Simulated scan of single mutants.
Amino acid sequence: MHTINGSQGEGGGQIFRSALTLSTCLGEPVRIRNIRAGRRKPGLMRQHLVCLHAAQAISGAEVTGAELSSTEVTFKPGEVRAGEYRFAIGTAGSTSLVFQTILLPLLLADGVSEVCLEGGTHNKQAPSFDFIQAGFLPVMAQMGYRAEVQLERFGFYPAGGGKWRARIYPVGELKPLDLLERGAVLSKEALVTSAQIPGHVADRELRHIASKGDWVPEELHRRQVDSFGPGNIVSLRVYAEHVTEVIEVVGEKQLSSERVAGRAVKEFKRYMEAGVPVGEHLADQLLLPMVLGRGGCFRTLAPSQHLLTNIEVIRQLTGTEISVRRESGPAWIVNVPDSMQAR
């Protein structure tokens, strides 16, 4: 049984989720210790527990340590079963992180799966539903993975209550990812989504975005939505020939509209000026599908601690040596070998 130390690197929940995904896909048991040791409240929170239950449900795994605040879990998966599943977090925890935990195992299963997810849909420090739909899944499709998603209800922190569905298809022919160039920028969009928030908040955010860059009125959009509780998120999108980058900042009570928008603009400028196709957050999420697929390479920004930690967890569980090297200026190259040849 592999043992993974959850305190290594950035010490967050990603170590736990990546270990679950790899264990489920490879059919190999794993023990994860010191879970989320780098966080203010270590151990499993509700959304991590739902990730564990979800991985258990699709694989019939034997599990120990499946309780809130647990800092050690053992996970012995069986065969992954395609089917219909529903996973409700019960809080505003991120449904996208639950989805990403079970996506690859279900993609590698032998039938179509229907998954319903309930909880938070647009969370701080997690990919939103929009990021999954517009940014992540199109790149997955380039590798031969296919999933379709549909949002039914928005869910913001702290009320939650969001709901969406995914239809996940078994893979056919997998292909290496070759994403070294962004290609021509076709269009860009600044989208502010709000629920139960005064209209002037979105107006101020859009005005600030327009004042800080080359944005025309046709690229600035407001989206007022229904949800169980208030929420606000700024989304800056770059639609390029080979990739769509989605940069998001969630509004918070203690942050002014200008600061929320300003954070998004700063990250947007960093991405655009680097000239790379893959943004910081997408880079981290491409590693597992590449390792379990046919490998490949991509250009991205300087590696985050999340990325480096994920690389180390992957090495420990699969033996795959992922290389990260600086190309020039802010651009870095990530290369994942085709480990399928060795299977």
Rank of each mutant, 00 (worst) to 15 (best):
I209C: 03
E273D: 15
L52G: 08
R81E: 15
T91V: 10
N335T: 12
A66G: 12
R167Q: 08
L117N: 06
M45W: 03
K212A: 04
D214Y: 04
G120Y: 00
H242I: 08
P277Q: 08
A82L: 09
V260Q: 02
E84H: 12
M290I: 08
E205S: 09
R259I: 12
R31I: 12
A240S: 15
G161I: 00
T320P: 01
F136E: 05
D203G: 09
T318Y: 04
I314F: 04
Q285V: 01
A82E: 11
V291A: 03
E321W: 02
W164I: 01
V112W: 05
K266A: 13
M340C: 03
S328T: 13
H221V: 06
L282E: 01
E321C: 01
E280V: 00
I132V: 14
V63M: 09
M45P: 02
P29G: 11
Q224H: 14
K253H: 13
S23E: 06
P127M: 13
H306K: 04
G13K: 05
K269M: 13
R86Q: 15
R326W: 00
G199H: 10
P170N: 09
A109G: 07
R81K: 15
G275H: 08
L26N: 07
L180P: 00
N232A: 11
T3R: 11
S187M: 08
V73S: 08
L236T: 01
K175I: 05
V276Y: 03
L220T: 03
I322G: 00
I311Y: 00
H208R: 07
A331C: 09
A141G: 03
N5D: 15
T320A: 09
I311K: 01
G155H: 00
S328A: 15
L107Y: 02
D203T: 12
N310L: 01
A210N: 03
S7D: 14
E273M: 12
C297R: 14
F156T: 00
E79V: 13
R270L: 15
G275M: 09
I102E: 04
L151Y: 05
S211A: 15
G319R: 03
G296E: 05
Q142M: 06
L52W: 04
H53M: 14
P42I: 05
G329R: 09
V216K: 15
V139L: 07
S227Q: 09
H122E: 15
P198E: 10
E219L: 05
A195H: 01
E189Y: 02
A141W: 02
E321P: 00
E241K: 14
D284S: 08
Q254D: 15
T193P: 01
D226C: 11
H53I: 08
D284T: 13
L317H: 00
P138F: 14
Q56K: 14
S96G: 13
A166E: 02
N5A: 06
D226S: 14
S187V: 06
R263T: 10
I197A: 00
I168P: 01
K266H: 11
H53P: 04
G120Q: 06
A190L: 10
G275L: 08
L308M: 13
R204L: 09
P158L: 07
G155T: 04
G279F: 06
V201T: 05
T320F: 04
D338C: 05
F129D: 05
E118I: 12
S18K: 02
H281V: 08
R315Q: 11
G172R: 01
I209A: 01
G93S: 12
I233E: 00
G6N: 02
E248D: 12
V185W: 01
S227R: 04
P277I: 06
